[in-house]
Design a protein around this nucleic acid. Structure first.
Lengths: 132, 132
DNA sequence: CGGGATCCCTGCTGATACTG
DNA sequence: CAGTATCAGCAGGGATCCCG
């Protein structure tokens, strides 16, 4: 019955690992940021308050489902603020909170790095693909 | 036949969007980083050269498939270097390249931000869930 | 106009087993 | 020990329809 040990150990490792992830702040943040649209929305809102439809047009390619979903999650995390103006057609605006703006600023650092070093990475890929 | 326009426009928008993404350096980098394991590997290798099996044990939870896959993609991007030592059992070591180490340093900035502000985010969530 | 609810499908991920 | 190949399961994301 030594068969179980291997699988069992993996199971335990995985559980421990998941627990670890759940408590790792940087990992959690990364999970948030890794969402395909989060950074785009953050970036778009860096220019100031915007409406749902404005964002939809600006980001072009989001289904409104994902946009709504993304906005919800950002709102939940306190990164953006949602303000509703009751009128004939309801008007909803979104804007970065302090925290959100702060995060956006951090992201810009990464963005700069990316713009500076992406050529290197692309070059490496070409080289690798050409048979490294 | 006005029915087609809407769907068609979305199609075009999506194509344009994809093209945009393909050229956006920061987006590309983000796609790489958003990979579940990339940052963990980067982080692990920050402590110096390590073997495949060492990484597997250290990261605990990766299937070796994903580990290999991740290592390959990082190697392709020129972020890590792979060195093979032929011996009785083959020995393979991985280490960060200059570029990789540089990126890892950048990531640490984000990590610090995460550690500093994650409590705020968590608090926001609790508040939101408790009915915001 | 903003957004909730459903359905469906793609593709990522992991488990397993095999080669060198 | 390092790596590849195959298969199956499931979640993420999109399209569509409908409500306030």
């Amino acid at each position: 019955m030594p068969v179980r040990t291997a699988a069992k150990r993996r199971q335990e490792a995985k559980i421990a690992y998941d627990a670890f992830l759940a408590e790792c702040p940087s990992r959690q943040l990364l999970d948030t940021l890794s969402d395909k649209w989060v950074t785009l929305v953050l970036n778009a809102l860096a220019d100031g308050s915007q409406r749902h439809s404005e964002l939809a047009r600006r980001i072009a390619g989001v289904s409104q489902k994902m946009l709504t979903q993304t906005l919800r999650s950002l709102e939940r995390d306190g990164l953006i603020a949602r303000s509703v103006t009751l009128a004939v057609p309801v008007r909803v605006d979104y804007e970065l909170t302090r925290l959100g703006a702060d995060l956006e600023r951090q992201m810009r650092g990464l963005k700069h790095w990316a713009e500076a070093h992406m050529p290197d990475i692309l070059a490496a890929r070409v080289k690798y693909d050409a048979q490294g």
